[in-house]
Design a protein around this nucleic acid. Structure first.
Lengths: 229, 229
DNA sequence: ACCTGAACACCGTTCAAGT
DNA sequence: ACCTGAACACCGTTCAAGT
């Protein structure tokens, strides 16, 4: 089993920005997470490693376009719902799923603004949802940003975790049993009492509670205000 | 003004793990954010670039020890408060501050477990706060993890943002005025209506609302349960 | 006009060689 | 026993040279 030449320039297509973004996304996807490097991308495209520099200012610009595509996917997957609460919850879960499916993008993009089409439509939609929930303009902005920043952050963290090499991830996971499961109960009574539950909790449960908290906060804030504007 | 030789091995101290972590933290601090690279660290220590490998398995282990020191700083800065709500809010703000002060650590550590002393005492303390708030054991674990995961994620994202080079950060910030301030109101009525507020909102406001939402959720959950266990 | 590939200035890590 | 530094296998990016 030779590991020498990995996929030696299979296809030869006319390059364009769209093809490059698509190819980079397959490299970034969790099945077959090879790092998205300029050299590997060139190889996968059947072109020279530096070919992408005629289509993008640099790797960062490519990354922002990949990120905007992720936001497009989220919106495709999340249908408008009758209740604004259901839409926000579905949006949050969709965002986390997509970020984890393309962890190499998700892990680095939470703090960025793509300034592109899919981001803009997402902002418009989420602002309209806040209005639907009964918030005024100032609160719409405030709670929209809180929702989206905390959700993007959480999704980015999950992506970063998915990107760890398996050995490191195992060490992290087993630490809740190995380290936290064997502390002296005298010194750490609360950890000792809850150790099995600490080891068993999943990120899905945590996301569910986090979404619930923000959605609840929006509803409570809307209830404080005069019924409509 | 020569840029050739930056600080040519100033001091010469006996190396130990503590000194290496301290030196790495000064490199990682936001005043003078030079990247924490193995070579720069060696130079700052007045030692060979590879000297740290006798004290740490690799850069990742060094990073985890730096992260545990960050958690120590957070706990030093946050005094126990009379009301559990105040403690959680102060802890959240302290965590974000420290992560942003050492962005090179904060940006990569949110998804990790340090498995070391300061993390363990933080877990114990936060679990006791959840109990104080009136939660049972299962809910204590659930809401503790929700609080800490969302807060760590948010702090990590703020750190990532602080790490961007200034040109990129400016582009990100001005995009809210340049791009979002100039969209057609017919197609994007909600963005057009709120554009000035969208451009003006700060991360402090967002953090405040996020903390409020989680603290509120804990109080509401505690109120659902039988008064004490 | 379009594309290549050598070269540059970096990374983290290993290991034979020095003291 | 302790430390060094050459070397390895990588990065992203630039630019003179080729077609």
């Amino acid at each position: 089993m030779s590991r020498a030449v990995p996929d030696p320039a299979p296809r030869r297509q006319r390059l364009d920005a769209r093809l490059i973004v698509d190819t980079a996304l397959t490299l970034a996807s969790s099945q077959g997470t090879e790092a998205v490097t300029v050299r590997r991308l060139g190889q996968e495209l059947g072109a020279d490693a530096t070919a992408m520099y005629r289509y993008f200012r640099g790797k960062d610009e490519l990354l922002l376009m990949m990120a905007d595509r992720l936001l497009e996917m989220v919106q495709e997957r999340v249908p408008r719902a009758a209740r604004w609460q259901d839409y926000l919850a579905a949006f949050g879960r969709g965002l986390v799923s997509v970020f984890v499916e393309y962890p190499a993008v998700g892990a680095v993009i939470a703090s960025r603004t793509t300034r592109r089409g899919s981001e803009i439509t997402a902002v418009e939609t989420l602002l309209s949802v806040m209005k639907e929930a009964g918030l005024n303009d100032d609160d719409s902005v405030l709670y929209y940003r809180t929702f989206v920043d905390f959700l993007l952050s959480f999704a980015g963290m999950q992506a970063q975790y998915a990107l760890l090499d398996p050995a490191e991830r195992d060490a992290d996971e087993s630490s809740w049993e190995q380290v936290y499961g064997n502390l002296p109960p005298g010194q750490y009574p609360n950890i000792a009492r809850t150790a099995p539950r600490l080891a068993a909790i999943t990120s899905d449960e945590i996301l569910r509670i986090g979404l619930q908290a923000i959605i609840q906060a929006i509803a409570l804030r809307a209830a404080e205000l005069p019924p409509q504007a």
